[in-house]
Design a protein around this nucleic acid. Structure first.
Lengths: 360, 360
DNA sequence: TACGTCGGTGTTTACGTAAACATCGCGCAC
DNA sequence: GTGCGCGATGTTTACGTAAACACCGACGTA
């Protein structure tokens, strides 16, 4: 009794769900605003969307009513009406890699600038099944398009039945000609790394590659090999890691066992960090005896011991171009089906130098 | 003419927008499925949602029709009907910090497991205006609740008018009693770090703090000071960085100038990395002359030179609890208004040792 | 003065879904 | 045999928004 008596006075227009059992009118709708302002809901709509043809007095009245009621447009209704969600889905396998999170960040920023929200669709493990599941889930998700950040060759076999009407842009993969692809110019970056070391006078360059399943790792390794072969140098056996510093450390220990190894190109900075540690522990000074080059140019790389020479990747630019490419599709503008390569550049720091026998 | 004649034969039910001008019926609706299956749309709805009371034969028929047409439920319509979006918004300032991306990853994973999608709402710079903008934008966003990962004291002044009906969980901040808070037990972590160094025999511990605006940095610094004072040790002046390895390096150079500095507690691992580099360059061996402890236990820390003793933060657990807490709110279960602290633990590695004068 | 035009506003309708209610036919109990 | 109940399915309606169309006065022109 008392409570009931108090309630009407307490909350002007609660909005919250008063009724214990089920959900009550959660939010203020146009009709509510219209009623308060003494106009039709269509006029409220016009004001809400900034359409012309509303006289200033009316407009003010509606805005006042909106403020009073705390009106917020219902995006579900909007989406239903317009047939689109203004949302971009991002399918990825983990944010833990620096590259991924930087790319996603850039995607989110640029998408926001274009009025799109971004929805994350994480894939536990990049297995065929899981990726498929993600696509299926996404089919039911409120997204207009999708940016896929993973090794798409996981999908090749199954010719995934992508829901029609959902547009796709792929990052860091070989989507072939099926989707537009945005990617860092991995090959050129690897080439620059190898060239840098050869130019310093090293006879050849050893390579610590990423995991075999990784397409990015693949391309870096291929370019490394190609550059060595083009220069007529011997191609040492590949050491392989899993992108982690730990795995780089183990690879580094193996490399340290080769006395003729004077130059190492690691497929990413973190493995390079592990290599630095291994070489240090084995008494092989860097860059005195061995030179090391990484890939990515993560923020920490300049603080390694010694500061790491590495290949800079512009993740932000990759994210930017993804959004652009996807928006082009969404707007039905002519899509460029090919691969859009973001250039890389070598950042020379203190981990590279001429080989110890340079003067001989 | 020819084209028109061909079309019906060519595409079974294109779905794509044929009409050049505007958007045509983009997707297959329940009505389409119902028509093909020869049932009412309500029956399609029942099948779609796995409701009981549909005879097996009918059910099969509907499923077949769904498959044939490639039916996917329209989540906008669903959301409109149900009054909720099954989506959680995450407001954050950048994914670049390891902690943030790991937390977001965990949030995304657990949210997905509960049938929620997550929408990212990036804030360019954590200024009052931007954060407010994010909240406003979010008000119009299709989210049922929000997880805020930033220094909420940026918001304090303005008593942000959070849209009613939107639930909030805050990470890594002092939201006071306004919202449930999930956080790492920063204070205890810092205490452990200091204690570890004192136990090794160091007379006192120097501190490289994070930026002044950071609440996390604040708490670590406060706990560091408190622990020193409790032990009756002198409290050296605080050096301050911005979380980056570069800033840690500069702070490290300043510390290296103090000959009596034998123990350093850095507020995160990356600044610790910079400190390691500075000490190395200044000929102060770690841990021979100086011991260093970090905070976070990022993956790379075990590969630093030397491998870093640090305080482990369980970001994944933080993410998990955030989702749990938010879901509890969404389900109108009794919310625990207090702060939920995730414990930390010290990981001893090779960067700490007794001070050089230990035997004296 | 009468008629067309146009600016400002209201009314109708559709978007896709699912709860609530209505219907229909069949088997079983009295 | 009649009526009741129940299982399977159809019909109506509402969710909130905005395009399309309808309307109604005031003004300008013939």
């Amino acid at each position: 009794m008392d409570v009931d008596a108090i309630r009407p006075a307490a909350g002007v227009q609660r909005g919250g769900s008063d009724v214990p059992g089920g959900r009550r009118k959660q939010r203020v709708s146009m009709a509510d605003v219209a009623a308060l302002a003494g106009v039709s809901s269509q006029t409220v709509s016009r004001v809400s969307n900034g359409h012309p043809g509303v006289i200033e007095a009316t407009r003010e009245q509606v805005l006042a009513a909106m403020r009073e009621l705390g009106y917020r447009p219902n995006s579900a209704a909007r989406s239903l009406r317009y047939g689109q969600f203004n949302t971009i889905g991002v399918i990825l396998f983990g944010l833990s890699s620096t590259g991924n999170s930087r790319t996603v960040e850039a995607i989110a920023t640029h998408a926001a600038a274009e009025g799109y929200a971004i929805t994350l669709i994480p894939v536990d493990m990049p297995t065929q099944d899981n990726v498929l599941g993600a696509f299926t889930r996404m089919g039911e998700l409120a997204v207009d398009g999708v940016i896929v950040i993973l090794e798409i060759h996981l999908l090749d076999a199954s010719t995934v039945a992508l829901p029609p009407g959902v547009h796709v842009v792929v990052v860091d993969s070989d989507a072939g000609d099926r989707y537009p692809v945005v990617d860092t110019d991995q090959a050129d970056g690897a080439r620059q790394a190898v060239r840098h070391l050869l130019d310093l006078g090293h006879r050849t360059v050893w390579h610590v590659a990423g995991p075999a399943e990784s397409f990015a790792s693949d391309r870096r390794a291929k370019a490394w090999r190609a550059e060595l072969e083009a220069a007529g140098r011997p191609v040492p056996p590949v050491e392989r890691g899993d992108w982690s510093a730990e795995s780089g450390y183990r690879a580094g220990l193996r490399l340290a066992a080769h006395p003729d190894c004077t130059a190492v190109f690691a497929a990413n900075d973190q493995m390079a960090l592990g290599v630095l540690r291994a070489l240090h522990e084995r008494g092989r000074p860097v860059p005195g005896h061995v030179s090391v080059v990484g890939f990515d140019d993560i923020a920490d790389a300049s603080s390694y011991l010694p500061p790491l020479t590495t290949v800079h990747q512009d993740f932000a630019e990759v994210g930017r171009r993804c959004v652009q490419a996807l928006l082009r599709q969404l707007r039905n503008e002519p899509a460029d089906p090919g691969t859009d390569l973001v250039p890389t550049r070598l950042i020379p720091r203190a981990s590279t130098a001429p080989p110890p026998d340079a003067g001989r």
